[in-house]
Structure formats: structure tokens, C-alpha cells
């Protein structure tokens, strides 16, 4: 078991570039942009880590999006993702190259990976951060996350261990546009993983439509109050060219797929218009939609906390209000067309 470490030996900010079938997860580019800011503040380098079977094009893109160096480990053993080989390779790289900070996307894959690698590297890992800063005098990473219920933000530090690791959910930070003129170095690393590190094998992988609600300009979201009936929500979202989203409760009830969950443990969205129907307004949910431009709340309980966090509220049955709203907007659209 690793003991105390000399923290001065550790430098640079790393971002784990999550990829599936040679396609990068968008959250990786969001973290690369945040990592760029943190590295500049520390006066250190930003390093992207890309693992997979055929990923050299992602190395180029990582440089265009801000990386000074890209570590590329290409080997068929890294496709598809498995925690054993990925974890072993990452531990080797950390031991050899000693990064100070490592950022990982808070996707299912990212959280599976982060939890696995934090143990052998004895890293301090903070989950689902919504803010990342560098402390002025110590240069420590300040990883901030809402606490239970979200009434306060806790700042988590890792003082004596390295690396300082954090996961961040998709949509919390914005990705930078690629700059084709940016320059950086690509370092190819030989895979240091053997069959003994493979504890599991993927028999089948089925990827359907990957809904990305984080880019939507309009979102109509439903909660427990829908009782599973999302029809009126879909109609309004369709009319406005927006996406349907939901609370954690609705996802847990199996009413809607997890990819559409908004909240601290789901996606963070920033649409121009967010319509919350049958959503009470748990802080867990508010964390994911607070940055929306305009928020409309529809709830039959006049005391629902969501009204405090909305610009406009209507007290009423969503099954009456939503269709009426859809009709009224359709009339307006047709009238002005």
C-alpha cells in the first residue's frame, strides 16, 4: 500500500478522454477546456490521456481543444472499455508520470473507471463536482459539490495524496471550439496490460440513439406529478423543437430513459426555456437546471418549492395546463406565420 507521497513531485493536469468505438464523449472536451484553465492558473501543462484501439485522430482533436501533450495508448485490449485493463494501465501511467490533477467525466463509464483507479493510486477522488478551482496560496484543487440535499456546497480537498481526482457530470462546463492551428506533442505509450488484468469480457454491446439533452435550447421536463404520462410533455417539446427531460424519480420509476435525467446525478442543462411540469423542485434537480435562461413551473401544489426557482408559475393540473399551453403557442405561431 502506498504511504506518504512527496506532493512536489506531482505536476500537470490530466484529462481522461472517454471514448467508445473511437468516438469521444463530449464531456471529455468539456473537461479539457476546464483543465486548460486550471493548468494555466498553476502554470503547468495540460495532458490528455487517450486509450483505445484506433484513437490517433482523437489525439489530434485533443491538441486542437487545448492539450499540450496527448498520451496515446493504442491496443485492442482497450476496446471496448473494461475496468481491469484501463485501471491497470492508468495506475502504471500515474506511477511513472505523476500527474497532480486528473479530471474524469461523470458518465457511467467515467465513474466506473474513476472508482477503480483511485484505489491503487491512493488518489483523493471527489464525485460529481460542479465547480473546480485552484486555491491561490497552496495551488490545491478545490473540488466543490452540493452536499446531501444540496443546501450547501462542500469544498473537498486532497492535501497529502496525489493525484487529486474529480469526476464532473456532462454539461457542467462548456467545451472549447477546436483550433486547428494549436500545437502540441503526441506521446505513444506501449500498453502495459496483460491477460491477467482482464477479469471480464463484453459479450454484446448495443448502443441506440444517444440523446444529448445538454445542447437543447428548449426543454420540457416532467416529474413525479406526470404519473408516468409524458404525452403532453412530448407534444409541447415537439412544438418548440425541444427535448423531453425528467427528474430522478421519473427515471427510477422507469417512465423515461436515464439519459434524459436532469439534476446533480444526471445532466446539467442550460436551455433558453425550461418548462418544469409536475416537478416539486428538489434541490438535487434544481442543480441541473438552475442555469436555464427562463424557467416556467406548472404544479398543482401552490406551495411546491419549484415556484421559488421559476420565473413564471402556474398552479394547476399539468394535464390541463400543458395541452392548453401547447394549443396557445400553436395558435400564436400560426397567427404570426
Amino acid at each position: 500500500m502506498p504511504g506518504e507521497v512527496d506532493t512536489d513531485e506531482y505536476e500537470d493536469v490530466w484529462v481522461f478522454i472517454e471514448q467508445h468505438e473511437s468516438e469521444a464523449a463530449k464531456v471529455s472536451w468539456e473537461l479539457l477546456q476546464k483543465g486548460r484553465e486550471l493548468a494555466d492558473e498553476k502554470g503547468e501543462r495540460l495532458v490528455a490521456l487517450v486509450m483505445g484501439e484506433d484513437v490517433s485522430h482523437l489525439a489530434e482533436e485533443a491538441i486542437e481543444r487545448g492539450a499540450d501533450e496527448v498520451l496515446v495508448v493504442e491496443d485492442p485490449i482497450f476496446e471496448p472499455y473494461l475496468p481491469g485493463p484501463y485501471g491497470e494501465q492508468f495506475s502504471e501511467l500515474v506511477e511513472e508520470r505523476k500527474p497532480d490533477i486528473v479530471l474524469i467525466g461523470g458518465s457511467h463509464t467515467g465513474r466506473d473507471f474513476a472508482g477503480r483507479v483511485a484505489v491503487p493510486t491512493y488518489a483523493g477522488l471527489t464525485a460529481d463536482c460542479t465547480e473546480l478551482e485552484i486555491e491561490a496560496d497552496t495551488h490545491l484543487l478545490l473540488a466543490k459539490r452540493p452536499t446531501f440535499g444540496g443546501d450547501a456546497m462542500a469544498t473537498i480537498k486532497c492535501v497529502e495524496h496525489r493525484p487529486q481526482m474529480a469526476t464532473v457530470r456532462p454539461g457542467v462546463f462548456d467545451a472549447a471550439e477546436p483550433d486547428p492551428d494549436r500545437e502540441g506533442t503526441t506521446t505513444e505509450v506501449e500498453a502495459a496490460v496483460g491477460e491477467e488484468n482482464v477479469h471480464s469480457r463484453v459479450l454484446e454491446r448495443v448502443v441506440g440513439d444517444i440523446t444529448d439533452i445538454t445542447d437543447a435550447e428548449v426543454i420540457v421536463a416532467g416529474g413525479f406529478g406526470t404519473e408516468g404520462e409524458f404525452g403532453p410533455i412530448e407534444e409541447l417539446a415537439d412544438l418548440l423543437g425541444g427535448e423531453v427531460a425528467a427528474t430522478r424519480e421519473a427515471v427510477e420509476e422507469g417512465w423515461i430513459e436515464a439519459a434524459r435525467q436532469v439534476g446533480q446525478t444526471g445532466k446539467t442543462v442550460k436551455p433558453d426555456l425550461y418548462v418544469a411540469a409536475g416537478i416539486s423542485g428538489a434541490i438535487q434537480h434544481l442543480e441541473g437546471m438552475n442555469d436555464s435562461q427562463t424557467i416556467v413551473a406548472i404544479n398543482d401544489d401552490p406551495n411546491a418549492p419549484i415556484f421559488d426557482d421559476a420565473d413564471y408559475g402556474i398552479v394547476g393540473d399539468l394535464f390541463e395546463v400543458l395541452p392548453a399551453l401547447t394549443d396557445a403557442i400553436r395558435d400564436e405561431q400560426e397567427g404570426t406565420a
Binding site: T147, A152, G313
Partner: peptide
């Protein structure tokens, strides 16, 4: 490896809070 370095209240976002 981790420790809590402090607690802040979450900044509330200003909203119109207008009932229609």
C-alpha cells in the same frame, strides 16, 4: 485522502417568481 475544506451556502439564482 480527501477532507472537507469548507462549506458555503449555494448561491441562489435570482428568478422572477411571478405567478400567472
Amino acid at each position: 485522502p480527501t477532507s472537507v475544506g469548507g462549506m458555503d451556502t449555494a448561491d441562489p439564482v435570482e428568478r422572477e417568481r411571478e405567478m400567472v
